[in-house]
């Protein structure tokens, strides 16, 4: 799929927008729409990179991006938050000028670093930059948040960014079994996130509430 790329730069820039928007519009719905948007845009990027998928692995990649990352992951978390009647506002990073500047600074750093990694400027360089920005922004979310939902969003952003990076390589679907294994891992991980979200709720909890009196294995 890496050979014969059609222009994906506009899509990559849109993806960057989808990565940044939920940081500034802080509601849990925006975060989940952001995740869905990442999945769909990555699917579109994968399609543009190999417009006529012939191998089963290429179809599986598209199905993973559309159905697992674009639909299942956000929908699974959405259902729980709706059932819990979670308040609409949900910060992914602290809502202040310093955090917003840091987020934009991270994007600049990612673009500068991609120039070092990919000497020829072009679409590959942009792809690496956007993937790098995705990973770093995911870490930024994780570093600044203590509530489970925001941490889940941070972890899923990192996973999506890694998938985007994988799309640009020549080795990204070496064996169908491995590809299916990776997708199964994502599905089970999101399933577990759903379980934890139901169990823990959206607020950070106090670890001091534990008991040592219970009987355990």
């Amino acid at each position: 799929m890496a050979c014969g790329w059609r222009s994906v730069n506009p899509l990559l820039i849109s993806l960057l927008g989808v990565l940044l928007l939920p940081l500034f519009v802080a509601t849990w719905r925006t975060s989940l729409f952001g995740l869905a948007g990442q999945g769909f845009l990555m699917a579109w990027i994968a399609y543009r990179m190999g417009p006529q998928p012939t191998l089963l692995g290429e179809w599986v990649t598209l199905a993973d991006l559309v159905f697992v990352r674009g639909l299942w992951a956000p929908a699974a978390l959405y259902g729980i938050l709706r059932a819990q009647n979670a308040p609409a506002k949900s910060d992914v990073i602290p809502p202040n000028l310093l955090s917003w500047t840091a987020a934009l600074g991270i994007v600049v750093v990612a673009f500068s670093f991609s120039q070092v990694l990919v000497p020829e400027s072009g679409e590959e360089e942009t792809l690496i930059a956007v993937a790098g920005a995705g990973v770093l922004l995911g870490f930024f979310v994780l570093a600044t948040q203590s509530n489970p939902f925001s941490q889940m969003i941070g972890a899923l952003r990192i996973e999506n960014a890694i998938t985007l990076f994988e799309l640009g390589g020549k080795h990204h679907h070496e064996a169908l079994g491995l590809q299916l294994g990776q997708i199964a891992v994502v599905i089970v991980t999101v399933g577990l996130y759903r379980w934890y979200l139901r169990m823990l709720g959206t607020k950070p909890g106090s670890p001091a509430s534990g008991s040592t009196e219970d009987v355990t294995l």
Binding site: F139, Q151, I162
Partner: peptide
């Protein structure tokens, strides 16, 4: 079962592991 601190510890284990393995 029912111990909040163990639920949080389990979540942190999964989170750190997911990020580490990522």
């Amino acid at each position: 079962s029912g111990v909040r601190s163990s639920q949080l510890a389990s979540w942190r284990y999964l989170l750190f592991s997911s990020v580490g393995l990522g």
